[in-house]
Amino acid sequence: MNKNIAIAAVAWAAASSVPAQVLVKPMVGLGITAGGDTIATVYYQNSNVDESRVHAGALFALHGGIELQFTSRVSTQFLVGYHVDQVRASNATVRWSRTPVEALGHYYLTDWFRLGGGARYSANARLHASGVASNTIPNTSFKASVGGVVEGEFFPYRSVGIKVRYVNERFKVNSSFSNETLDGSHGGVYVGYYF
């Protein structure tokens, strides 16, 4: 309880210390991504589809956070998200997921287009298999990863942005007995809404 009160007090103090001329905008976004190593392949029986793959850079990403607009050309974003790829069958599920935290800076080249990038910290990275898939695919956790983001964003409307981005990140198995590295680098297209 005291920890929650302390966190709320720090967040309130940080928000109240932002200068009045800085515009603070909450935002949410949804993206589709592709790339990275193939983590698992699931084979189907009695189906029109032979197999499906789980990729380290795929597939769906959600995020939310705040944007600080310092001038008409310069802004920063602080985002927290959830990034997941999953294959599901009637008797098995294989899921790869992580929780990314991003700190990004942007520069507007025009009123409707900006370029930016920054750092991405991905925690809670794990591969989870259930059902019959757990017989051949081990549940595995990975160490947190620090990577980079480069993106461009187009604004068809003032409150709607469409991002095209590339993320470079790698994950190491959370074990002292393995040096296995997984490439989670990916490209993606995101749609964001700015309140």
Results as ranks from 00 to 15, higher is better:
M1R: 10
M1P: 01
N4V: 01
I5T: 08
I5P: 02
I5L: 13
A6H: 03
V10Q: 12
A13H: 06
A14K: 04
S17E: 07
S17G: 09
V22R: 15
L23S: 14
V24Y: 08
V24I: 15
K25M: 13
K25V: 11
P26T: 12
M27W: 07
M27H: 14
G29D: 01
I32H: 10
T33C: 06
I39G: 00
Q45W: 04
N46T: 05
N46G: 13
N48A: 11
D50Q: 15
H55C: 06
H55E: 10
L59Y: 12
L59Q: 10
A61R: 04
L62K: 05
H63R: 12
G65S: 08
G65A: 08
I66Q: 07
I66N: 09
I66M: 11
E67A: 11
F70E: 03
S72H: 15
R73S: 14
V74W: 11
Q77L: 11
Q77I: 06
F78E: 10
Y82G: 05
Y82E: 03
D85M: 04
A89S: 15
S90D: 12
S90P: 06
N91T: 07
T93C: 03
T99C: 10
V101K: 13
E102G: 02
G105P: 04
G105S: 12
Y107N: 12
Y108G: 08
T110N: 08
T110S: 13
T110G: 04
D111E: 12
W112A: 09
W112F: 11
W112P: 00
G116D: 01
Y121D: 02
N124G: 09
A125N: 03
A125Y: 02
R126S: 14
R126P: 04
G131Q: 07
V132K: 10
S134E: 11
N135G: 10
I137R: 07
P138K: 13
P138Y: 10
N139D: 15
T140V: 11
S141N: 13
F142L: 07
S145Q: 01
G148H: 06
G152L: 00
E153H: 02
P156Q: 12
Y157R: 13
V160A: 05
G161F: 00
I162K: 02
V164N: 01
R165A: 01
Y166L: 01
Y166T: 00
R170A: 05
K172I: 01
V173H: 06
S175M: 03
S175R: 04
S175I: 01
S176K: 07
F177H: 08
S178D: 04
T181E: 13
T181V: 10
H186N: 11
G187V: 04
G187K: 01
G187F: 05
G188L: 00
G188V: 00
V189C: 07
Y190P: 00
V191Y: 12
G192A: 12
Y194W: 15
Y194H: 15
F195Y: 11
F195P: 09
